[in-house]
Write a protein that binds this DNA or RNA. Sequence first.
DNA 1: AGCTAATCGAGACGGTACGTCGAGTCTTACC
DNA 2: GGTAAGACTCGACGTACCGTCTCGATTAGCT
Lengths: 209, 209, 209, 209
Amino acid sequence: MANKTAPDSPPGSAGGTPTRRRSERSRRAILDASLALVGEVGYDKLTIEGIASRAGVGKQTIYRWWPSKAAVLLDAFTADVDEYSAQGLPDTGDLAADLKLVLRATADEFNDPAFQAPYRALAVAGANDAELSRAFVDRLLEPGIRVYVDRLRAAQEAGEVAADVDTRVAAEMLLSPFSQRWLMRTGELTYDYVDTLVDLVLRGLRPGS
Amino acid sequence: MANKTAPDSPPGSAGGTPTRRRSERSRRAILDASLALVGEVGYDKLTIEGIASRAGVGKQTIYRWWPSKAAVLLDAFTADVDEYSAQGLPDTGDLAADLKLVLRATADEFNDPAFQAPYRALAVAGANDAELSRAFVDRLLEPGIRVYVDRLRAAQEAGEVAADVDTRVAAEMLLSPFSQRWLMRTGELTYDYVDTLVDLVLRGLRPGS
Amino acid sequence: MANKTAPDSPPGSAGGTPTRRRSERSRRAILDASLALVGEVGYDKLTIEGIASRAGVGKQTIYRWWPSKAAVLLDAFTADVDEYSAQGLPDTGDLAADLKLVLRATADEFNDPAFQAPYRALAVAGANDAELSRAFVDRLLEPGIRVYVDRLRAAQEAGEVAADVDTRVAAEMLLSPFSQRWLMRTGELTYDYVDTLVDLVLRGLRPGS
Amino acid sequence: MANKTAPDSPPGSAGGTPTRRRSERSRRAILDASLALVGEVGYDKLTIEGIASRAGVGKQTIYRWWPSKAAVLLDAFTADVDEYSAQGLPDTGDLAADLKLVLRATADEFNDPAFQAPYRALAVAGANDAELSRAFVDRLLEPGIRVYVDRLRAAQEAGEVAADVDTRVAAEMLLSPFSQRWLMRTGELTYDYVDTLVDLVLRGLRPGS
DNA sequence: AGCTAATCGAGACGGTACGTCGAGTCTTACC
DNA sequence: GGTAAGACTCGACGTACCGTCTCGATTAGCT
């Protein structure tokens, strides 16, 4: 829950000074402006001054609470995503079907332009900024992988997956080709591709294979 | 072989205007300076002015031939890499051993700091610039994947891999988790990891699995 | 009094936005640096960057308040001159003596290297920039002529000068040959020349001539 | 006749190397382009590259024959003017009428936009470049003054002007106010003004005044 | 008529300065 | 004390020209 990249605490939380007189109004305006702007002009042309002006806020108010535009964007993006990924994968007993269902939905999401700009920006901003990278992974990437690992482990316990399989590596075999394709634009994220990928990965997981 | 990001032609090539009389001396100095600087200060702090000054060159000479610092870096990086990846993967008849051998070597390479900075920078720059992304993929990423696809197809013809396997998807199952780990810093690229990955992927490829 | 070339108002003046909170420290440093540099390197080699660097100031601070280097120089030069020309010409009753006295002093001034560079520069810059020209004339040239016109008119009222003489034209007959000689370097500004000029001009002004 | 600012000699003249194989075609194109451009964009934005490109000429061809854009312009302007001013002032016996006639014509000329740009530019370029200034004065300004001095001297010999008058100073009293007005834009050059000026100057020149 | 060297159009080159943008810091006035 | 506003220094941007320097390709004058 603790925000690694921004030194803010929600009003009422237990900080050194119980309540920092921070304007919630400004905070929301800044996050909203960030998301709007990154969609309009792209990450490279996203500027602190632009965010401040769009949000009707002084630059200092941004600098006071966030260390960089990436951190702002991460907060903005995370706020929308946090609850979503907390619900886990469905478990109908049919592993292949469950994975295809969810990955197809994810493909739709990744093909949504509104989602692409900020996510790409963050994925990439992390590459040259180890600190931000950690925050991005911890808050967005890792939770996403975790639910797949959990589902695979459940399947393992149900005997649907061989006991000696490293579920973490298996999850990455599923997710990395998918996100790599999208990130590097090496191919389309179609339902066909998703199905092929799931099937091929699962062939290696079956007991006795 | 054609250079997609820089509008230059090697002297003597058949262009509309026969030869643009480009200074090879400057070209080399610029590429060298780019690689040196990206290693020293990182991609974000890499500037055209910095490259120009380090190379002892006017800024215009850079702008004349490249559209962005990313394009310069791509050329610089590619020049060193081109010949390397043209030789294909070994084929001893033992697919697992061959893959492990090469992936281990690649892991070493990715763990080399001199290689990391420019490669990360390019991966990242591509994400926010579709044009550059294509050049990056075509000139660096795709050739790297191709050799794996070729090796897998050879194995398929040798009956070592099931005939119905999509070798392209299989290659990505191998390479994407690997490069994703590195790019996002979600884990170390150890020999153990490589071996585990290769083994798990191959389980799904075997005929009759 | 109003500054035509710079959009600044002295702190405390009544503008739409009460006070623009301009740094007096920077303003002085810029004006001082301009005068110093124009003397050292000449107007052509005077650059905004040079002024900024010498003044220890960002370029933007200059561009924020002045439209061109000529405008800066005009302000710098005017600041030193404003009060000076407000005192009028002496009136001892002897017109010729009074004019010779003042013109000799002016000759000394025009022969002073510290004065030459900026004044020449402004005269020149004005020729190719009508806007600046107006400011130059209004703030430097015109006040200088005015005091002569006033003195001539006083002489006219005293009966020393014919009533039908256009004092403005007469003043120009006195001042233009003088400044033209200096500007075009067609001759030296000696006391002899000044005396000859005054005498010849006055011959035409005497009543009954 | 010798050109002080440009190291060229007309073909056939006696230089070290008797005949320099210079392209007359290029020379004309350069001078024409200069005049055209200075009229279109003004002196400040007149560039060597612009002239070269407009004239369809290599930059080097300009640099080979002229030291600066001012020198080019001076040549271009002089070529058109040289013959004109060689004919002297009319002498009908009525000095005032002769002066008014010619000065009115000159006023018309100075009010012609095509004439203004280059002449102003040259007058002014000289202020910061003593070398050019001398050339400008010698080739354009001085010959213009000379004809007035000659006419005044003739009048002096005819007893129309007092014998003790310095005709040079008198000529400047006539011409400087005129050109100063124009150069500094301190007033219009009307026929009225010309007449007033001539009359007032002549009042001081009459014998016995 | 052929030779040869100066001159030509073209434009790349190392530089300097331009005028603009944004970063991150600081100051002022308001609430 | 947090905030909106915005001036400040600084660094880099991408562009325009500078004056110099090759490149072939004319081309003029001499042999």
